[in-house]
Amino acid sequence: MRSRPIVDRLLGVWGLLVIAFLFTPIAVIVVYSFNSGRLLASWEGFGLDAYSAALSNDDILSAVSVSVRAAAGAAVIAVVLGTLCGYALARHPGGRIGRLVTTLLALVLVTPEIVSGVALLPWFVSLGVDQNLTLFNSGWVRLVVAHSLFATAVVTFLVRARMQGMDSSLEEAAADLYTPPLRRFRSVTLPLLLPSVLAGALMAFTLSLDNTIISAFVQVSGSTSWPVYVFSAVRAGLRPELAAMSAVMLLLTLAALAAVALVLRRAGGSKETVGALSGVR
């Protein structure tokens, strides 16, 4: 018992060090977004030049807009497919379709991005060029489809975790009162699922915004996404504009995250959210 305070204090110091480690590069990017010099890494002076440069740079704005539109599309697809699938898996876990889908979704989660990227590029080319489905020559469609796969898996497991924590008596009561199936889903099931659906939508959106490797493969010229643009800038030379745009996006993401966290906290599901997110159930 005597060793307790020392070990506890060491653990506390370790915890703070890890948090500091996690925040170091973010703080650096935010600080350097106020660099008035021409190169990101060499500090010249404090100024807002980078922000005005970023917000008037057409390449940057178009890359961010491509990313945001792709993320919105991927989030919509992932929420629709994932909510239905997660609900089905929770209410009917033993079925053959259920087992097959669960296996496939788990495989999607553990496939390295590079493999998904090299698999989707030839597939889109053969669909779009050989089969003449011109839909798949659109950069937006390609990004949306490619980003929706991982996100669907995340939403499915979130919704399933939420649904499993809830018994079906409310739905059964509604059924016993002769509520038609669609109405039952809308006015009983969906409100119960809302926190996990929201969390899933936000995750799908941010995962898509973050995606570099798959996007680099499937994009077509003219639809360069923001991370791919940044990655090409790493080779060409980094300017403070990138940091400024990143700081703006960080602020927006944090606002969205805080809103969802508030909803989740009110619904009391933070633990299961983290659990489902991290694959532990």
Partner: peptide, 11 residues
């Protein structure tokens, strides 16, 4: 964005 954080380390 993980790429941005990595660039932070480069700085």
């Amino acid at each position: 964005n993980f790429l941005i954080r990595t660039i932070g380390w480069q700085v």
